[in-house]
Structures are given as structure tokens and as C-alpha cells.
Design a binder for these strands. Sequence first.
RNA 1: GCGACCGUAGCUCAAUCGGUUAGAGCGCCGGUUUGUGGUACCGGAGGUUGCGGGUUCGAUCCCCGUCGGUCGCCCCA
Length: 412
Amino acid sequence: MSSKIQAVRGTQDMVGEDAARFDAVVETFTRVRRLYGFRPVQVPVFEFTGVFARSLGETTDVVSKEMYTFEDRGGESLTLRPEFTAGIARAYISNGWQQHAPMKLSAWGPAFRYERPQKGRFRQFHQLDAEILGSGEPAADVEIIAFAQHLLDELGLQGKTVLNLNTLGDPETRAAWQAALIAHFSAHRDALSAESRDRLEKNPLRILDSKDAADKALVADAPRIDAYMSGEAGAWFDAVRKGLDAAGVAYQRNEALVRGLDYYRHTTFEFITDHLGAQGTVLGGGRYDGLMEALGGPPTPCVGWAAGIERLAMLLDAPEAETIDAAVVPMGEAAEARAFEVLQALRRAGLSAEQAWRGNMKKRMQKADAAGARYAVIIGDDELAAGEVTVKRLATGEQWRVALDALPEALR
RNA sequence: GCGACCGUAGCUCAAUCGGUUAGAGCGCCGGUUUGUGGUACCGGAGGUUGCGGGUUCGAUCCCCGUCGGUCGCCCCA
């Protein structure tokens, strides 16, 4: 295939069912986000590299080896977004959106990471994104999680995902807990896996969700955050849990669900599935109260989530194939000359309609059937002479004549 | 970035131990039917076996490389 033109590794072309699944996810997202008052936001697909480097942290895998970074002709280092949050936060700061706070924003589109492709993991992938900027209330966490749950329900994924919920506490809580974890794992350093010894330096919280058997044994009796929780942090988490209960959102406490970056505070959550192999997370998010400041902006409490469109699309039941209301089948030159008049009348009346551009009647009837048309609108010399068309209901085969100007009504 | 498996028509797959013209179903095109689709029957097109190299009298099959896919690790959506 090397001599043939081919798509870049980890990118995909979608038509038919794949495209329909993708479309169904986006359409449902747009519908549900309106129910919650999340407004659309558009931000660039690329930013100055520093936006992502500063927001994600230089040591993160995403920044150190997964970004698509390039220089433009002016010598600026630019990066294709590996996620949405940093760009939205940058826009908030650049445009002074604090005057609008709190803002409930949503977006969807492509993101890029240079990773080894797998099922549910691509180099260009697509995300749904929701953010609440400038609200330091537990109620915002409840609302954004309820939105996520509602979206998954509307997608028909009840039973296929489980909401995992945890808290990282406030900065004091987090710092105390992290120090205790480092002390605990350092004491058993030799028993840790090589990866986790590495994490001990760079990202100690991450040891908690290691898949290594030896690590798991040490994690089992590692210090729990609940023992270090400050009064305020505990009250916050209680408020979130009570809110979720009131909203009817079921969750599972997962004390190992953590985020490595310091600016994450309090609530963290992921909707996890066991239907996608190693890629279990279908939607993940949390509160990132420290991010805006890390980017040089005003202190701004925020909470948000992102979901993988491809991952959701893979979990969906196959959407119904798209159909049309009518296929116009003209016979002969005179009829072909009138076909667009009929087509446009139907479309203007809100009925979907198309015609095959060539072929005899049989061919065009076959195309009508293949397009899933409810009706065939047959126009021949006889019909034209009478100012009528023949309408055939393809499901039953019955057909009848209809006056040309009464056609749209007849097909409703 | 690390490890493993896989790659044959548009799609899903077959082809004995390495053996001569690489097959089938679906799909596509045409016909049976010059104003009637979806069913049925008949016919047809479509392949440098991902690509490059090696071993062999002979390679879809064995070896190496490469590109792509898949699974796990890592990370994450």
C-alpha cells in the first residue's frame, strides 16, 4: 500500500454507519447541552505551544511526547490542541470573559495526540467538551455531572458505563495526602514496579491506579484521602454527593481515581466502560480551580469534562439508516425538465427529496428504493398532460395520481 | 516509546506439507422486464496476495525490512 495514497496513521475516514454513529453522538450532545443552558464556544484548533505546555505541565506525557508541534512561517511554535480545556481557558483570559462569569460553555471537534493507535485511540480524535468557568460552588460540579449522565442516557448507554467519583480535596488536603502517600510508597520502594518507582518522582498519585499486581497490593493499604480531609474539603465533597443523590445520579466512590496535575482540586470523575478494551474512560473530568492562574489569569474556579466521540460512537446501538420522503422519477425529456420544479416544491415544503440523474425508469426506481424513499413520484408524458404526477408508496406498492400542486400535502 | 499478533477482490473470508489458470458469499454493473423498486434467475467486471528485498526449481504460505491494523503496557477521550 506504500505506493498508494493513504491516510495518515491514526486518522480515519468515515461514511455510512460510522459517520451516522458519529453524527448521532454530536446531535444528541447539542440537544442535551441546550437542556442545561450550556452555550456553544468556538476556539482555535491550534494555539501557541506554551498554552498547552503550561496548562498540562511540562512533564506530562501529553506534553513531553504526544503533541503535534510545528513552527509556522513566522517561526512561532504552534501546537494542534491535544484537548479543549487549555484553549478555552486561554480564550477566557485573552477576552476578559470574567465579566460573564459564571459561564457554561460547550464545544466539540477534533483533537490531536501523537500516540500509538488502538481501538478507541486515534491520533486525530474528536471530543465533546463542557466547562463551567468562574463558579466555585459544589452545585456546579453536580450540574455538569448530571449533564454528562443525561447525555449518556440519551445516547442509550445506560448500563454500559459506571460513574466513578472521587475528591482530591483542597490544596492543603491534597498536599498532606500526597506526602503520606510518598512516605508510604517510599518505604516499600523495592516492591514497586519500575513504572511506579518512576511515578513516585513525577506523579505519585498515579501509583494508585497502577495495573501492576505488586503495586495493587501496596495500594490496598496505602493512606486514604479521607483521613487527611480538611473540614472545608469534606463539606464540599458531601455537598457534591448530596446533590448527585438529589439529581438521581448514581455513582461509585473510587478512591484511586486521581489527577496528576496540581491545579486539580476537589471533585474528579470518570464514566468508565468495560466494552472498549484498554480504553475504559468514555467521559472524564473534574474541578481545576488552579488552571487559570497557572496560565497567568485571574483566580477562577472551574469544572469541566471531555468525552471521546469515537468511543461513545462505538458503544452506541447502530442508528437507523437515513431515509428520504420522496424520490422523483422523471421519464422523458419533458419530465426531466420539470423535475427540479417538483423537487424544490417538496423541499420547500420540508420534505426530503432527491432524484437519480440518469438511467431508465427501472434504474431510477432501484435508486429510489436504495435511498430508502417512502414514495416514488413518477412523472411521465401522461401525467404532465393531466397536470398530475403518479405517487407510489414503496412499502406497499400501491400507487395513485395526484395533482401537481397538491403533491407536498399528499406526501405528508 | 516498549512487547505480541495480523495484512488475499469494494467488504467478510477460503486456498492440503511451499506446487502450476488464487476461489466463495455479499456488494457493484448488465440482462430476463423500452412506464415500475424491494424477491427470483442468468451473465459480467473486479487481484502485481499491503509494499520492498531474500531463500527456493517454484512463495499467498518460510526469512528480513517497511507501511498499516489489532491487543496489551504506558497514557488518556
